[in-house]
């Protein structure tokens, strides 16, 4: 198990190097001079030249790439062009907010979707199943920003129950978490239903029924025990994506997270911040995936046996 985790962490290194290279190329190919963007149109040619020299922008791409990689190894992701603060500090300042939002969203999603998925599967083709699955389809189809706006209009403007923007309290968390969690919940509900449908037809479920332990226990202990793998897979992917910052939701709710920061950095062509943000996203996403794989081992002893 330890060896497996170590191996996975080592595999992360080429992934990060590749991602950095791709971002470097893309940022280089997009139009716009960072010096001009940062200093503004009124800046003199000398000032721009000095900025370019100071930031090492005149060096060829391979040199800049290698310099970035070596800095990264020393734990530095460069300094922001805009604020002149270390990128790592900028990101770390915003990551907790994103983490909080992503966690709240995924918990909300799991709490509503798993029961819906289970009941839909057990009562396949019933009214509950039909309504539940149509709702899930709507949940997936509905754009999150639109849902966010609807939620703001209803619960903030009309009813005045919850704040429309900002972060800090639990009340601030509810609307963005719901807006963010709905499509996620819809996905998880559908996957829970379909894997549950498959599992309740398995022979071992019949064996469990033949013990006379009652339907509840058959479902909760025997069926759910086997249902977690696909559910955790989907939930993990969604959680990883959300940790990269849910750009639009953070924007709509003025949530000061990584996603919002990344969006602003891209429009300002603040390359070090964009790069740093994406490196962080890559690492976080990979770590979440690794955690999901580790959780598998605790759910399914057959997978655990493979890791040894």
């Amino acid at each position: 198990m330890h060896r497996y985790i170590l191996k996975r962490l080592v595999q992360l290194i080429p992934v990060i190097l590749g991602v950095v290279l791709i971002i470097f190329l893309i940022m280089d190919l997009t139009p716009g001079d960072p010096a001009r963007m940062v200093l503004g149109n009124m800046a003199s040619e000398e000032a721009i030249a000095a900025f370019r020299e100071e930031q090492g922008l005149n060096d060829p791409l391979p040199i800049r790439y290698l310099r970035y990689v070596f800095d990264m190894l020393r734990g530095s992701l460069g300094t922001s062009y805009r604020s002149s603060r270390p990128v790592i500090d900028e990101l770390l300042a915003r990551f907790p907010a994103t983490m909080q939002l992503a966690s709240a969203s995924i918990i909300f999603a799991l709490v509503i979707s798993v029961p819906i998925g289970i009941v839909s599967a057990l009562k396949q083709n019933s009214l509950f199943d039909t309504v539940g699955m149509v709702a899930a389809l709507l949940g997936i189809a509905m754009p999150a920003f639109w849902l966010g706006l609807i939620l703001i209009i209803s619960f903030s403007l009309k009813l005045d129950w919850l704040p429309s923007s900002g972060s800090g309290s639990f009340k601030h968390l509810i609307l963005p978490a719901v807006a963010n969690g709905v499509s996620c919940a819809a996905n998880i509900a559908r996957i829970t239903r379909s894997s549950m449908l498959e599992i309740i037809r398995q022979d071992y479920i019949r064996t469990a029924k033949s013990k006379g332990i009652g339907k509840m226990k058959v479902v909760l202990k025997h069926a759910m025990g086997n249902c977690w793998i696909p559910v955790i897979t989907v939930a993990g992917l969604q959680f990883g994506t959300m940790l990269g910052g849910t750009v639009i939701i953070e924007n709509v709710f003025a949530w000061n997270g990584v996603g919002d920061f990344l969006l602003k950095s891209i429009s300002a062509k603040d390359t070090p911040c964009v790069l740093g943000g994406i490196v962080m996203f890559t690492v976080v996403f990979s770590v979440v995936n690794l955690l999901v794989d580790i959780v598998y081992a605790f759910i399914d002893p057959r997978i655990k046996a493979q890791y040894q």
């Binding site: 071992y204 064996t207 469990a208 033949s210 002893p301």
Partner: peptide, 28 residues
């Protein structure tokens, strides 16, 4: 009823199923 049957299943009447490879719960 189901409840009355559950009291009998596994105690009064038991069944050994056809395929041993799939009849045990893999996660328990």
């Amino acid at each position: 009823s189901e409840k009355q049957m559950d009291a009998l299943r596994g105690s009064t009447v038991s069944m050994v199923f056809q395929d041993p490879m799939t009849s045990l719960n893999p996660v328990l």
